[in-house]
Amino acid sequence: MSYDATFRVWRGDATGGDLQTFTVEVNEGEVVLDVIHRLQASQAGDLAVRWNCKAGKCGSCSAEVNGRPRLLCMTRMSTFAETETVTITPLRAFPVIRDLVTDVSYNYVKAAQIPAFTPGPRDADGAHRMQQVDVERSQEFRKCIECWLCQDTCHVIRDHEENKAAFAGPRFLIRLAELDMHPLDVLDRREDAQDQFGLGYCNITKCCSEVCPEGIHLTDNGIIPLKERVADRRFDPLTWLGSRIGRRPRS
């Protein structure tokens, strides 16, 4: 049941690198991460790769397999022909640290900028009451394992480093949608979504939904409804009038 596969793995660091070719054993049922681990143990002890759970739950082992953003632990070798060369490269949207490990700090910077969850008060008995149907909308987005594949594939930043300052990426647009739909949250982040996090940059090509290993419908269930809510606020004449009447001059 085993065979020898040809792997091309990008090796290098911030100063440059190239694809190196390896011949490596593959056994029944294995995933790409198993093969990378075999390379580490037998041919390249210092090959850098992130991983943790090896079960598609933590979102650490993100990379590109034959050019497509994937979790290495959930990409089965049986999806390739035995004669096919498998090419593994680091996530393209982020700067390389070493080999398959990239600097994903952009995501942590954006996460810290999002105004925190702000709950309303508890009921008199100390509980929060919510209906299952109401929590499910936000629960879909809380399935996110922060693998950053959506960020990697999003064309707004994939080859446009200059957009990163103004655009938080699909992961954080659905975080905003999650908070907007959260039954307990009382903060309005719609202005921020548009002005600080670049909601308008997204032109809903749905690439993020396609690569999501959790099957989250980022665009249909998160980003589009958020865009509609922002549009409501911005273009509703009554909202506009209300915001004028209530506004006080800055002192």
Binding site: G126, A127, V135, D185
Partner: peptide, 20 residues
Amino acid sequence: VRELEDWGALFDRTPDGLIS
């Protein structure tokens, strides 16, 4: 567990709206 809800956790619910 209750304080996790104050920090944003969304547990599955009972029919009464409590944490299942």
